[in-house]
Nucleic acid binder design. Structure first.
Lengths: 202, 202
DNA sequence: TTATTATACTACAATGTGTCTATTAGGTTC
DNA sequence: GAACCTAATAGACACATTGTAGTATAATAA
């Protein structure tokens, strides 16, 4: 979808109003309590106008997610074309985190707010507690480095770790600079990568 | 809260009906579309009866989350009292994954279903793609082991990785046994732990 | 200017919410 | 068994939300 279609400025304005109003509301009340009524009221548009743009709230969320991923992809692709290989992944990470930090209001409500199922948060807390207490009375350490872990599991592990760490970082109002966090993430991830290298078919 | 209060069997029955109906519905339709009406209808109870137990759907979710965490805590605490230290964390992990596998229908809809904000899923996918393509043209590998990463970041990283991996595992309908997955998670996590050990104040 | 189109406005039926009241039915206790 | 307690049911209510009409108005594009 190139930039040529030249969208009506009124459309852009309305969509921006809706988006801002929604993010605004999400800072105050839970997603379940957000209605088209409230969004329209906050956005100072007619309720019917909302339906001219989105079928319902879930679809609007989809569209917002599309936009978000689009923006990040722009960054990622830009870096990948520019300086390939080597520290590519590292500068991608830095740029990504800086982008998130710049739009932290958006990302915080979208990624890190009390979404709905508290389930993730609860489980997360449980693991945090476990790991915390575990790391206190640490006595043994494994000599089982360089083991082959199935690729998909390693990818699940790394991806979840990245996203989850960023979410925690946002929730804590970004206590580290994007650069520093990127460095730590790179370290933690590379260490995992070492074990992936052998890649023996298990 | 001891078991002594002896709850009315009718209450237990109704709560179970509500819970089953809700999980049932969550397999079919999105959370936003689930109403008290539908739950009551599916549970074959009167709509008013729902309000005798929960104030609204979000509160019901909270209660269900409480129950879930309670069950997991039972497992964790049981293991911790039984065989302390050594492979403690490993048997905790195995028991936890087995418990999740046994109640996979519940956990799948609660943790791994298309909850609401597709945002997490999208970002997750982006990272999976990145890591996948990255691991294909892997040329360099870091010699920067045993670096000190701030404790909170390491905890964020590990906790997110654990939960996220389990979620992916559930979404793929558990292609590995709980025992095997627990082993892989232990490996990945211990490798990270190695770097945590120095714990120099940054 | 003229044609197009997004938005505003009003209205409507349908559904959902939360909370009453009164009644029925199941469970517990003596 | 009878008496008591309380859950669940049933019907009703005011109110909010939804999704979709039809028409009018204003902004944009040609």
């Amino acid at each position: 979808m190139p930039t040529t279609p030249r969208t009506d400025p009124r459309v852009l304005r309305t969509r921006q109003l809706i988006r801002d109003a929604f993010i605004d509301l999400l800072e105050e009340i839970q997603l379940e309590k957000i209605t088209v009524n409230r969004i329209a009221e906050r956005a100072t548009i007619n309720r019917v106008t909302f339906y001219l743009h989105y079928r319902d709230i879930p679809e609007m969320l989809e569209k917002l997610a599309d936009d978000m991923i689009g923006e990040i992809h722009t960054i990622v692709d830009g870096i990948q074309n520019q300086s390939r290989s080597r520290d590519m992944d590292w500068s991608i990470l830095v740029n990504m985190l800086e982008h998130i930090a710049e739009n932290s209001k958006f990302y915080k409500v979208m990624l890190a707010s009390q979404r709905i199922p508290v389930f993730n948060d609860r489980l997360m807390k449980l693991f945090v507690d476990l790991i915390t207490s575990r790391s206190e009375n640490q006595t043994d350490f494994p000599s089982t480095l360089s083991m082959a872990v199935p690729k998909d599991i390693a990818i699940w592990y790394g991806s979840s770790a990245f996203i989850g760490t960023i979410v925690c970082w946002l929730r804590e109002d970004m206590p580290y600079t994007p650069l520093f966090l990127a460095k730590q993430l790179s370290l933690l991830f590379h260490i995992q990568q070492v074990t992936d290298l052998p890649t023996d078919p298990e």
